[in-house]
Design a protein around this nucleic acid. Structure first.
Length: 467
RNA sequence: GGCGCGAUGGCAGAGUGGUGAUGCAGCGGACUGCAAAUCCGCGUACCCGAGUUCGAUUCUCGGUCGUGCCUCCA
């Protein structure tokens, strides 16, 4: 079965045909590093990580580029507010971003270009646009001339006239046309800036992605991804810049956009105080639970992120790990079941893939012979691993405890019990059970339950888990 | 005002022109010293109206409700 993707350009699901099957290129808009990544930032990371995994399976080489925007007015403002130097702020935020996304089992992109390392490319691109009559300099700014591009608005399906009707921002006096957008702007002495033919300044946001994608993937590449909100103006402007600079060559063949995340039914906003950062969620939930939650709805649908949903995802992963736990071990090198491959290749249908994982877990639990069970476990593990899930072995998984639980026990979740404490109590309980002292056995079990440890008596002894 | 998206059982959430999504929750049973885990069984769910059709939750049109974007927010 072939990969199909919903292309925003055509608003329809299309069979993916690479420009060069020997090497597929994908560009995804990455973070502006001024603040900790929140759950909404994490969704495209997980979505395009899945697409990356699918592509890597289907094609011998995939180049996944995700930029880091480290020059931006939000960064300048944040630095001024906090007093932290810009470079320290961007380095610290980028490092945190990497750690958080790795915790979600997102593979690192092949190339992660930084805007500040591509200023020369941006300047060259802007000069090219000026030479071709698509941009003009005015009062230290350089602006893209929207009327110079006949197809402007094709991706977002808006005409420049319509855009003006809804414009909420006053038109700067140096703009020839109200829709024109900034490619380069002057920097004050206390703002980061680079020398350019138009004086000391810094790039506009859109030109950064055009320059970086060209540098690493060429003028035209296969897939460009990002959040739904980027369709206009960011991606529209990227298309305008790149295709005008490259004599009309399209920027990307397929445009893929993920839907937004709401929190407990509301749009995320700082004023509502419903802003979950990935970092703080990782204190209370394993990264995989966050990942699975983000996969629980189709990527183009809005996703309502709730604590209850997170708990359910954790419970689901527990169920799958439970199936994998114990003997016999999963068969090694088991293939990913074709139905799971097909679900992902059908426009990344992760909810369907998850339902298939549930069924695979059921097959494991119902397996009669050891050989059958081992094979079924192998299939479940292979499928889950393909989706970036169940990467830990079951014993490690069930020993996971929320932050602050293991040592302190102040919130009750770990009860301050170490693994050794737990093993000792289980032994004491086993002794009591052997002596038919069930009152004592139940007392110990309750003690452990109060500490967040659940016991499971089996034919081969007692297993335990936190949760 | 413009451009989109959505409406599926208590909840989450796929999908399909005619048969079961799946999970959670709930009920009953098996297993267990009791539990837990697991297994088995149990649900006349497809917003409203019209149309197309032998047949529509699925296609078309209209309506209602909800929701996103409209110059730098993933």
């Amino acid at each position: 079965m072939a990969l199909e993707l919903t292309n925003t350009l055509t608003r329809s699901k299309e069979v993916f045909t690479p420009i060069d099957p020997a090497c597929v290129g994908m560009y995804v808009c990455g973070p502006t590093v001024y603040d900790t990544a929140h759950i909404g930032n994490a969704r495209p990371v997980v979505v395009f990580d899945l697409l990356y995994r699918v592509l890597r399976r289907l094609y011998p080489k995939v180049v996944y580029v995700r930029n880091i925007t480290d020059v931006d007015d939000k960064i300048i403002i944040r630095s001024k507010e906090s007093g932290e130097p810009i470079e320290a702020l961007t380095e610290r935020t980028a490092a945190l971003y990497h750690a958080d996304m790795a915790a979600l089992n997102a593979l690192a992109p092949d190339i992660e270009p930084r805007a500040t390392k591509h200023i020369a490319h941006m300047i060259a691109l802007i000069e090219d646009l000026i030479a071709k009559g698509h941009a003009y300099a005015a009062q230290g700014h350089v602006l893209f001339s929207v009327p110079s591009m006949p197809n402007y608005g094709k991706l977002s399906r808006r005409s420049p006239d319509e855009l003006l009707a809804g414009a909420r921002v006053e038109v700067a006096p140096y703009k020839r046309d109200a829709g024109d957008f900034v490619l380069w702007k002057p920097s004050a002495d206390d703002q980061p800036g680079w020398d350019s033919p138009w004086g000391r300044g810094r790039p506009g946001w859109h030109i950064e992605c055009s320059a970086m994608s060209k540098e690493h993937l060429g003028p035209t590449f296969d897939i460009h991804g990002g959040g739904l909100d980027l369709i206009f103006p960011h991606h529209e402007n990227e298309i305008a810049q790149s295709s005008c600079a490259h004599d009309g060559a399209p920027l990307a063949k397929y445009w893929v956009h993920n839907g937004f995340v709401t929190v407990e039914g509301d749009k995320m906003s700082k004023s509502l105080g419903n802003f979950f950062t990935v970092h703080e969620l990782l204190d209370d939930y394993p990264g995989e639970a966050i990942r699975l939650t983000l996969m629980s709805a189709h990527y183009r649908q809005p996703l309502d992120f709730t604590k209850d949903g997170l708990r359910q995802s954790k419970a689901t992963l527990d169920r799958w790990q439970q199936a994998l736990r114990g003997d016999p071990a999963p068969a090694v090198d088991a293939p990913v079941p074709p139905a799971v491959l097909a679900a992902l290749e059908d426009d990344l249908n992760t909810p369907l893939a998850i339902s298939l994982l549930h069924e695979l877990a059921g097959v494991v639990n119902k397996a009669g012979s050891d050989a059958e069970k081992s094979a079924a476990k192998g299939a479940l593990k292979a499928a889950a691993n393909y989706l970036g899930l169940l990467l830990q072995d079951a014993e490690t998984w069930f020993r996971w405890a929320p932050k602050g639980a293991a040592g302190g026990g102040e919130d009750g979740m770990g009860g301050g019990l170490t693994d050794a404490d737990i093993d000792r109590l289980i032994e004491e309980r086993q002794a009591a059970r052997k002596g038919k002292n069930f009152a004592e056995a139940d007392r110990i079990r309750q003690l452990l339950a109060d500490a967040g440890v659940v016991l499971e008596d089996g034919p081969k002894g007692t297993a335990w888990k936190r949760g």
